[in-house]
Amino acid sequence: MVCDEVHHFVESNQGVYVWETLDRNVQKGAGAGSRLLETTNAFNPLENSIAQRTYEAVMELGAPRILYDCREAVRDIDLKDEDAVRAGVIDAYGDSHWVDVDGIVAAIQDPRTSAAVAYRFYLNNVQENADGWLSKAEWDACREDEADPILPGDQIAIGFDGSIRGDSTALCGARLRDGKLFVLGLWENPRDPKQPDWEVDVLAVEAAVKRAFETYRVEWSYCDPPFFQEAIGRWALEYGDDRVFEFWTNKPMRMCQATERFHSAVAVGDLKHDGDKDLTRHCLNAVTREVPQGILITKDSPRSRKKIDAAVAAILAFEARADAIADGRLTVRRRRVVGF
């Protein structure tokens, strides 16, 4: 059985489900000589495709029954250096004598070809999309799992991005003293044909907000009003209008500034996260969109199933943290040492 272009087999297009079904059938017939052949271009490490999973199974986990064969050009070739590009193409294509080396070199150096496309599809280098908001390496470098867990009573800020049907609804927290992010709640449309009328469980959202205020010392929260404006008003009355604020993410100047601060914090390691898979997925799903006021994040296409709402909530939580600290709300409990 042959699966071609498995870098396109991703969860959003049901490719992973198709591959898993085929793989199970092959495993059942392995004794009779059944085999599964995968062919692919270099994968995008932000997509968690079947190509990526196979690569990680072999190269990182040492799966013993997979034969993996790959030729990759030297990484980070200067794409403007024709001689270096030519050497890279020859290296990547090996003994594929039928390849038009001159044509591929010309395609790589065509100004319409992005660097991400050149590296992935012509030089076989694993490469993220050029318009991706965060790199996986940068995001992973900010991960901190068990060393300093977030505990009840910690001072936090909250970010909330709400929807009802199409997009996800996300509630994220950021600890004040170090900016460590965590997910307080995420409600995603399962895209299940059996649930065509799926809606966010509003009561579950309300319960999560209540639980957050009861569990932690919430000093500041920014909430995007569409779909939940009435609820946000009630939260302000219940938990204090000095702790619950509206933050309209459709106002580009303010959102661009918050997005840039978040991105800069990731780049220099001033932000932490607990490795939550959903938060990571949403942050790495986000691509950039340039507007006159700066850079915003968005989905890779309007109808994309690759959601980013937890990323938006995280930006709001990190921004709320900054404003809480600027307002003087960060208190440090000092240990008292008594000598005898």
Rank of each mutant, 00 (worst) to 15 (best):
N250T: 14
P292E: 06
S304Y: 05
D167Q: 06
D327T: 05
A32V: 04
N250D: 15
L123M: 04
N250K: 15
F318K: 06
G162T: 01
C142K: 00
I297R: 01
L36K: 10
D110T: 08
K277M: 15
V126W: 07
G240W: 12
Q52M: 15
G294E: 06
G240T: 06
R35T: 13
F227Y: 15
A84F: 02
R303E: 09
L176W: 02
L37K: 02
I308G: 03
Q109S: 03
Y216C: 04
R24A: 13
H282Y: 03
D110C: 07
Y239H: 14
F340G: 14
F228A: 09
L271Q: 11
A311W: 06
P149R: 07
G233W: 02
C223I: 15
K277W: 14
G159C: 05
R175L: 12
P302F: 05
A87T: 07
L330Y: 05
R305D: 13
K251P: 02
A317G: 12
Y122R: 08
R329L: 15
A87H: 03
N25Q: 11
I108L: 05
E144R: 06
E146Y: 14
V126P: 00
R254N: 13
K136W: 02
A84N: 00
A174R: 05
M255V: 12
I90P: 00
R191P: 00
T169R: 10
E11K: 05
A30H: 13
T169G: 07
L284N: 04
R303H: 03
D69R: 08
S34Y: 11
E11G: 08
D178C: 09
R234I: 00
G339N: 11
Q27N: 08
W19T: 07
W19V: 10
S168P: 02
Q257K: 14
V18W: 07
Y93Q: 09
S168H: 07
D23P: 00
V101F: 03
W133C: 00
D131E: 09
R177T: 15
G179C: 13
